[in-house]
Amino acid sequence: MWLSPALLLLCLSGSLSLTGPSSVTGTLGGSLSVQCQYEEEYQSYKKYWCRGQNEGTCDNIVETQGEAKEKNGRVSIRDHADRLTFIVTMENLTADDAGSYWCRVRKTWYLGFWSSGTSVQVKVSVSPEKAMMFLSSSSSVHLLLLVFLKLPLFLTLVGAVLWVNRPLKGPGGSQPDKEKPSRSAPSPGKPCPGIQPFRPDRRDLQTLDSRAGGQQSLDSGGT
């Protein structure tokens, strides 16, 4: 298909008059924002957010009415004319929100019978990342409980068991004898333990006999 230079220039100028992200991604249950910038010549015109595969047949979802914030269900739009920017916000995202959207600015002439404008396509994706983050958060909480609560409790129980079953020690750090024989008084006629019995030899007997004889002589002389 061949385009005339004038028509090609018109298409290029229109695409350059409005810019925005080619794609955005949000999470289930979350929200996302799309910011589109336009040229000063479009400052006083309405801005639109529509959905569809083609620019000319997309369905309008929400449009601006001046600089006030406009909302349609979970989708809102606001024109910041001083910054030549309008922002679209989608809240409480669902999987059905994924698809092709358009930022649009429309000019109208001849009492609405003929119009022109510019637009830019934005691909919206919705991921279940929030659910994965919830699972990851639950795993992190369980790990923290294991480290800071369950593990110290387990170590405390092990320490208590070891302390109860520890070997007892007597005075001075020595372990007491489990089976220590009781001490009893020695039997008559038996020497005390540790004492050697006295056994006199011949010399001792002679000395005792001589002392006994001398004592008898003294006794007889005295009488």
Rank of each mutant, 00 (worst) to 15 (best):
Ile87Pro: 00
Phe154Glu: 08
Tyr45Asp: 03
Leu144Tyr: 02
Glu41Tyr: 06
Val147Lys: 02
Arg78Asn: 07
Thr94Glu: 03
Gly99Ile: 08
Val75Cys: 08
Asn92Met: 05
Leu84Trp: 02
Thr156Asn: 06
Lys107Met: 05
His142Gly: 12
Val158Met: 13
Arg106Glu: 14
Asp82Trp: 07
Val141His: 10
Ile77Asn: 07
Gly117Trp: 10
Trp109Ala: 13
Glu67Leu: 06
Tyr45Thr: 11
Ser119Asn: 15
Ser127Val: 07
Thr89Lys: 09
Leu145Gln: 07
Asp97Lys: 01
Ser100Cys: 03
Tyr101Arg: 04
Ser119Met: 11
Ser76Val: 02
Ser138Thr: 13
Glu129Pro: 01
Asn72Trp: 00
Val124Pro: 04
Val88Pro: 05
Ile77Phe: 03
Ser76Glu: 10
Leu145Val: 12
Asn54Met: 09
Leu111Ile: 02
Tyr42Ala: 05
Gln53Met: 02
Ile87Tyr: 00
Gly52Leu: 07
Asn72Arg: 05
Asp97Met: 02
Gly73Ser: 05
Glu63Thr: 15
Asp82Asn: 09
Ala68Asp: 11
Leu153Asn: 01
Lys47Gln: 08
Leu93Pro: 12
Lys150Arg: 03
Ser138Trp: 14
Leu93Ile: 06
Lys150Met: 08
Ser100Thr: 15
His142Ala: 13
Leu146Glu: 03
Trp49Val: 10
Lys47Pro: 03
Ile61Leu: 15
Thr89Ser: 06
Glu55Gly: 01
Lys47Met: 09
Tyr110His: 05
Leu153Trp: 00
Phe113Asp: 04
Glu91Trp: 02
Arg106Val: 13
Ala81Trp: 03
Leu84Ser: 11
Tyr42Cys: 00
Cys50Pro: 01
Tyr101Met: 10
Val62Asp: 06
Thr118Gly: 07
Gly112Thr: 11
Glu70Arg: 10
